Simulated assay, not measured.
Amino acid sequence: MAEITASLVKELREKTGAGMMDCKKALAETNGDLEGAVDWLRKKGLAAAAKKAGRVAAEGLVAVKAEGTKGAVVELNSETDFVARNETFQDFVAEVADVAFSVDGDLEATKAAQLPSAGKPVQDALTDLIGTIGENMNLRRAGGVSVSKGVVAAYVHNAVKPGLGKIGVLVGLESEGDVAKLEELGKQIAMHVAAANPQFLTVDTVDTSAVDREREVLSEQARASGKPEEIIAKMVEGRLRKFYEEVVVLEQAFVMDPDRKVKKVLEDAAKEVGAPVTLAGFQRIALGEGVEKKEEDFAAEVAAARGA
């Protein structure tokens, strides 16, 4: 039997919002398996979250660059927001985005590529910057989007400068239509992606393990109602459609016009731009997503310092 620690119970509570005793019981029932405990609580109706956003704790900046039919986005973390406001740091992140753009958003290729202003690889230049500023930093993520014809549009949320902010989004629209109108549409779709945080492009691209897991949880919830199996099957399929509407960008209600799904917005745009429009891909990076900063106990820190 795995040890059920207080920190594990605390993490489960933060994920699900369930009570402490329910969390302890869930962990005991699943032998300390955190994700299994989340599912156990959901099956019992004690946690409603189908998915959760990672706690955003890391500081730094996200940068995007998009031109024509390609774009890149990078995330560079720092320890404090003070560094993120440093112009030297901001200029560095913007230049790294330029480098990432030249290598199609590949993270390792970006680290290894030359940073023009430093005359050395990005990773080596970052090491130098760490020494200059005196704070640890990490080029954590990079991504790219490209299309053969059409546009790649970019959007930055909470921008501190053009192309620099807290959330960076790229959207690739494949089309032979009017470029200026495609740019405008792409910006709107990118803003939607920033707000709605879709996980997948189409229903067909949804991870099968995620669907299987969701189906199992929904089946258990439906069985608790005591209805016949054939009714349960219909209930599950209906709820799965709602699941797709939450995680698949084309199935989501468009943030700027909730009466239409994103796929309908694209269909309707064909007349405006003069040609069919396909959402070929997207990238969304939110600063510090999935990274937890160490929680500091200031009183304990002062006490330890006095003891020293």
Score class of each variant (00 low, 15 high):
K264A: 09
V151N: 02
K263I: 08
A112D: 12
V151T: 11
R260H: 14
D91F: 09
L182T: 03
F101G: 01
M20W: 07
M21G: 05
T16P: 00
P121L: 12
G71E: 06
T132R: 08
G186S: 06
D124K: 15
A94S: 14
E295M: 07
E95M: 11
T80K: 12
K65L: 14
G143D: 11
M1K: 11
S225Q: 13
I285C: 03
E295K: 15
L115W: 04
Q252E: 09
D268C: 01
Y155W: 14
G238V: 06
K261P: 06
P162F: 02
S78F: 00
A118I: 05
A2T: 11
L27A: 07
T80W: 05
G143T: 07
A154L: 05
A303I: 14
L279G: 01
V38F: 01
N31A: 11
R306K: 13
D22H: 03
M191T: 12
S148Q: 13
V38H: 02
V122A: 05
T278Y: 06
A97H: 02
E296D: 14
V96Q: 01
S209Y: 09
E237K: 15
W40L: 07
K181F: 04
G307R: 09
T205P: 04
V62K: 06
L173A: 04
V169F: 04
K166R: 14
K52S: 12
A118G: 08
D257M: 07
D212A: 15
E245Q: 15
A2Q: 11
A253R: 14
R239V: 12
A308Q: 13
I285F: 13
K44M: 14
E220F: 01
G186K: 02
K65I: 08
K271P: 01
L34K: 03
D268W: 00
A270L: 11
L170G: 00
E174M: 12
G119S: 08
G54P: 05
E79P: 10
K149R: 10
V262C: 10
V179D: 09
N197P: 02
V277I: 04
K70S: 15
N138P: 02
L61D: 09
G163Y: 02
V171T: 09
K227T: 04
A305Y: 10
N197F: 12
A224P: 06
K65R: 14
E79N: 10
M20E: 15
F92N: 04
I231F: 10
E176H: 10
A142N: 07
F82Y: 08
R213M: 08
K187D: 07
A280G: 13
G172N: 03
A154P: 05
D212K: 15
E301L: 10
